[in-house]
């Protein structure tokens, strides 16, 4: 798989040379379906083409490529295009490889674009913690929790909402349940936006019935 087959090269060329949105979408679709690692870099580039349909297809393709896409996604994170960055963070969140922890924490806490922060915060709770050694695991989970507890007090309702989604997933970890439930209780009392309050209630209901998303 390391040296791209001629076929994949052809698919990549079709993406980079597409001269209409419709051709671009079709070409990205084919490249994504090929599931070839050689196409990863091109799929990441598509995230910055300002074509939401093509970008959504590319994100799906990257998620299917799974762990092999993680390092390239982090390295090619677009500093200048927040739209592209949001898609990349969404892909990292869905792949859920804990190597992305620090990237997600930085994005959730400090990115200037709300879309990036939402994607990072909601994904931060659902990383595949079992892929970490047990000593590392605890400190990684603690970092994620600390970030989300702070992000859940952001002035932007949509970011608080995303933090609740992240915290809900984290709260299934026995050591973290208690402080997260305490934060949820606080939010039911004081959260100004009805929609966020409703999401907190849903998170609590799911914690009680043991459903985690």
């Amino acid at each position: 798989m390391t040296d791209a087959s001629a076929q994949t090269q052809e698919l990549i060329r079709a993406v980079t040379q597409a001269d209409s949105p419709a051709r671009l979408i079709a070409a990205v679709q084919k490249l994504a379906m090929a599931k070839d690692r050689a196409g990863i870099s091109t799929l990441i580039a598509v995230l910055g083409y300002n074509n939401p349909t093509a970008a959504t297809i590319a994100v799906k393709g990257l998620i299917q490529l799974g762990q092999s896409a993680v390092q390239p996604l982090m390295e090619q994170l677009d500093e200048y295009n927040y739209g592209a960055r949001a898609y990349a963070i969404r892909a990292l969140a869905a792949i859920a490889d804990p190597r992305a922890l620090d990237v997600l924490i930085t994005a959730a806490a400090t990115d200037f674009a709300p879309s990036v922060r939402r994607a990072a915060a909601s994904g931060l709770g659902s990383l595949h913690w079992s892929e970490l050694a047990s000593q590392q695991r605890q400190s990684a989970q603690a970092k994620a929790q600390k970030t989300l507890l702070s992000v859940s007090q952001d002035p932007d309702w949509s970011i608080r909402y995303a933090a609740v989604v992240g915290l809900q997933a984290l709260s299934t970890i026995p050591d973290l349940t208690q402080p997260i439930q305490a934060q949820f209780e606080q939010m039911v009392q004081n959260e100004p936006d009805l929609a966020v309050r409703a999401r907190v209630q849903l998170a609590r209901a799911r914690a009680q019935t043991g459903i985690c998303t």
Binding site: A119, A121, S122, S158, Y161, V165, A198, T213
Partner: peptide
């Protein structure tokens, strides 16, 4: 709950 599931998918 349905609306929130949709919202979750858009974060």
């Amino acid at each position: 709950i349905q609306v929130m599931n949709l919202m979750d998918s858009l974060l």
